[in-house]
Design a protein around this nucleic acid. Structure first.
Lengths: 199, 199
DNA sequence: ACCAAGACTTACCAAATGGTAGAAAAATAG
DNA sequence: CTATTTTTCTACCATTTGGTAAGTCTTGGT
């Protein structure tokens, strides 16, 4: 029927949607298959198990996020504000694909079956960001604080934003751009005040 | 056996724990009963259905939260900073009973079966807070912004904090007091800058 | 002592769940 | 066209799930 890996990607997309809204346990393979006009066993064929499907969806999502961050981290332009670029980059993803951060929210919950995997996936990126921040602190361009804490705080704010977007959308609110812009300002402000060296 | 409503409250406590960690769908009545040394039908006897149990847990949690907020909103002492009191109050709850906000996070997810109920429960409190803020705006003591948005933003920050506490605890991190204090400062700062009238 | 109401249990069930085994179809290679 | 591999489907299955029916046991009132 479908000659290329089209089916696999369709499954991934719908799975992301389902996982990030009704959650992992709330997602039934039968329902998922039915909504795709496909038999459940087709899903199992491509992803072996439900957990395998979750892992695949998670890997893909983390990859997209990672790429969008790596891109910014890699640039060495001293004229650009690296932090602002990072924040803008993440917010762009959050606006374009809120489901993606919805999945993160779902998966980062304590007790989630994929929590350890997420930790492994995000580990390298986190460490890289942390070591970069610590370098900046050493050089005196950044106030000395707990880098991991700042990261964690920023992370939860962004995920919170994404969740808000979801909620607002389901509540029928159309204008989500202004709130998100305001939220971004808030995050930027927090990062600035907590990162710039004390005068 | 247990003459007073002791069993009922034990069920509520364990249910709150389970719902706020593994989620509604991830909670099995059988497991819940077993962890209480009780038969599943005892739970059904007290709460009719699983949904009924969720509603009961939610009602109790919202009640606790509401009381702790009403207490602050009711006071009319002009010498006290109302906003700071509110923030402190919520953070105290978040620290003492993180599971409570964990439940909120679980339930406020789009697609949650109890989302509309939560909306109804929190509705009056929200409206009260909003009308108070709008009154302050009229009087010029507060910058004119979207009150609902500010509330939503603060809410998600607090819930984010509670989740962090949970995550940090499961990750074995012991010192959660310092991070939360820092987070509270951040929230306060945000509220101040976004609420004080423009100079 | 008796009875009614409350509290908790055993017995059971229909539906849904994730998963296995293997056939049928479709695509691809020779 | 045929052989092979990839993809999808039909047929089942064991377990778990929330829930019903009806019993037992306890407690308190009269």
């Amino acid at each position: 029927m479908a000659p290329r890996g089209e089916t696999k990607e369709r499954i991934l997309a719908k799975a992301l949607e389902s996982f990030s809204t009704v959650g992992y346990d709330g997602t039934s393979l039968d329902d998922l298959a039915e909504s795709l006009g496909i038999r459940k066993q087709t899903i199992l064929y491509h992803f072996v198990s439900k957990r395998g499907l979750l892992n695949a969806v998670l890997d893909e999502s983390v990859k997209i996020l990672t790429e969008s961050l790596e891109e910014v981290l890699a640039s060495n332009d001293p004229h650009r504000d690296r932090i602002e670029d990072l924040v803008r980059s993440v917010f762009r993803v959050a606006l374009e694909q809120p489901l993606l951060l919805g999945l993160l929210r779902e998966v980062s919950r304590p007790g989630s079956p994929a929590a350890p995997r997420l930790k492994n996936q995000m580990g390298p990126l986190m460490e890289r960001a942390i070591s970069w921040m610590e370098g900046e602190m050493e050089a005196g361009r950044m106030r000395k604080t707990d880098a991991q804490l700042v990261l964690l705080s920023a992370y939860s704010t962004v995920v919170g934003l994404a969740t808000e977007i979801e909620i607002l959308r389901t509540a029928g609110v159309e204008r989500v751009l202004r709130p998100s812009a305001q939220r971004r300002q808030e995050l930027l402000h927090f990062l600035r005040t907590s990162l710039t060296p004390a005068e």
